[in-house]
C-alpha cells in the first residue's frame, strides 16, 4: 500500500485518501471559521495544514476528532462519517487515532509511565508485564525511558511533548494529529520533534496531519501542504509547488512578509486622524 517513491506532483492521485473533508462549514458565535473547506488527506503521508494564527487550525483538528460538530459538510475518516457515528462508534474510531496537543495535555495526577500506559490500560486487557514492555519501548523511542518516574510537573515543555507523543502512539494508531507541535520550543527540542515525527511516520506507516505555522520545520517533514486563510483553502500542493505559488496571500505567508494581503495593522481609523483629533482618541479610550 505504501509506495516508497519520492514526492512528485500528481502521484497523490494514486494514493487513497484516509481523511476526506467535503464542503465543511463551521461557525462559532457570530464568527464564521470555515466556509466550504475541501481537503483530501492521503494515507501514510505527512500532510501539513498551515495558515496564520486564528484561522481555526486547531478547530479543524477538533472537527476531525469529532469533538466538534460542523454546521454542514462531511468529514470521512477511512470511509466513516465522523459526525454520524454513535458515541460508542466514535470512541471506537478514536482508538485508531492519536492526537498530540499543543500543551502536551499529560494527566497531571499520573507519572510519565502511567501517562503512556493509560491508553493501554483502558483499551486492552494486556498483562502488566506486557504493558510495561510496550510503555518502555515507546518511551525509548522518544528518548525518555529514564524519565519514567517523573511527574508531568517536573518535565520541561519539550519533554512533556515527547511524552505526549509516546502516549499518542502507545496504541499504534493509524492516524496521528499534531496540534502546533513546534510552538514555544527551543531549537534543540524543535529538531528532536521534527526527527521524531518523521521517524514515527516512516516506522509505523501512519497517516500524519500536522497543524502548524512554523514554515521551515513543517516544510522539512510534510509531503503535502494545505494553506488555509479566511475560512477557505487558499492553496494546496507539495512544498515545492507552494514555494513558487503566485497568489499574494500564499507568498506573504510562505515568505513571512510582515505586510501584504493580511494587513499588519488591526482595522483602525487613519493614523493622523487618531493622533491629531483628540476627541476621537478619548472617545475610543
Amino acid at each position: 500500500m505504501l509506495s516508497a517513491h519520492k514526492v512528485s506532483a500528481g502521484f497523490y492521485m494514486t494514493d487513497t485518501a484516509f481523511i476526506e473533508i467535503q464542503d465543511l462549514h463551521f461557525t462559532r458565535g457570530d464568527h464564521e471559521i470555515f466556509r466550504g473547506v475541501n481537503m483530501s488527506i492521503p494515507r501514510g503521508r505527512v500532510t501539513a495544514i498551515m495558515g496564520p494564527s486564528g484561522t481555526g487550525k486547531t478547530t479543524l483538528l477538533k472537527l476531525i476528532g469529532g469533538q466538534l460538530t460542523p454546521d454542514s459538510g462531511r468529514i470521512l475518516i477511512d470511509g466513516q462519517d465522523v459526525n454520524r457515528l454513535s458515541r460508542k462508534a466514535l470512541f471506537k474510531l478514536r482508538q485508531r487515532m492519536g492526537m498530540l496537543f499543543q500543551s502536551g495535555a499529560l494527566f497531571s495526577d499520573l507519572d510519565v509511565f502511567e501517562n503512556v500506559a493509560f491508553p493501554l490500560r483502558v483499551h486492552t486487557n494486556l498483562p502488566d508485564a506486557m504493558v510495561r514492555d510496550i510503555v518502555l519501548l515507546k518511551l525509548q523511542a522518544v528518548g525518555l525511558r529514564g524519565a519514567r518516574e517523573l511527574m508531568p510537573s517536573e518535565l520541561s515543555g519539550g519533554m512533556a511533548r515527547r511524552v505526549a507523543l509516546a502516549r499518542a502512539v502507545s496504541l499504534d494508531p493509524e492516524l496521528i494529529l499534531y496540534d502546533e507541535p513546534f510552538v514555544g520550543q527551543d531549537p534543540i527540542s524543535m529538531g528532536v520533534l521534527v526527527q521524531l515525527i518523521k521517524r514515527l511516520n516512516q516506522a509505523l506507516e501512519l497517516t500524519s496531519v500536522v497543524v502548524s505555522h512554523d514554515i521551515k520545520e513543517t516544510l522539512s517533514i510534510a509531503d503535502y501542504l494545505y494553506l488555509i486563510a479566511d475560512g477557505e483553502v487558499v492553496a494546496h500542493g507539495t512544498p515545492q509547488m507552494l514555494d513558487t505559488h503566485q497568489d499574494p496571500r500564499v507568498e506573504q505567508f510562505m515568505h513571512g512578509q510582515p505586510d501584504g494581503p493580511v494587513p499588519f495593522h488591526y482595522p483602525a481609523q487613519p493614523f493622523y486622524d487618531d493622533i491629531l483629533n483628540h476627541d476621537a482618541t478619548t472617545r475610543i479610550g
Binding site: 477538533k62 476528532g65 469533538q67 470512541f91 471506537k92 478514536r94 482508538q95 487515532m97 492519536g98 492526537m99 496537543f101 499543543q102 500543551s103 495535555a105 499529560l106 494527566f107 497531571s108 493509560f118 491508553p119 483502558v122 483499551h123 505526549a164 502516549r167 494529529l177
Partner: peptide, 18 residues
Amino acid sequence: GLMKATEQLSSMEMIGVD
C-alpha cells in the same frame, strides 16, 4: 477547570475515554 484548560479532558476524549 485546570484539566480543561490544559486540554487534559480533550486528550482523554481523543484517547477514547469519556
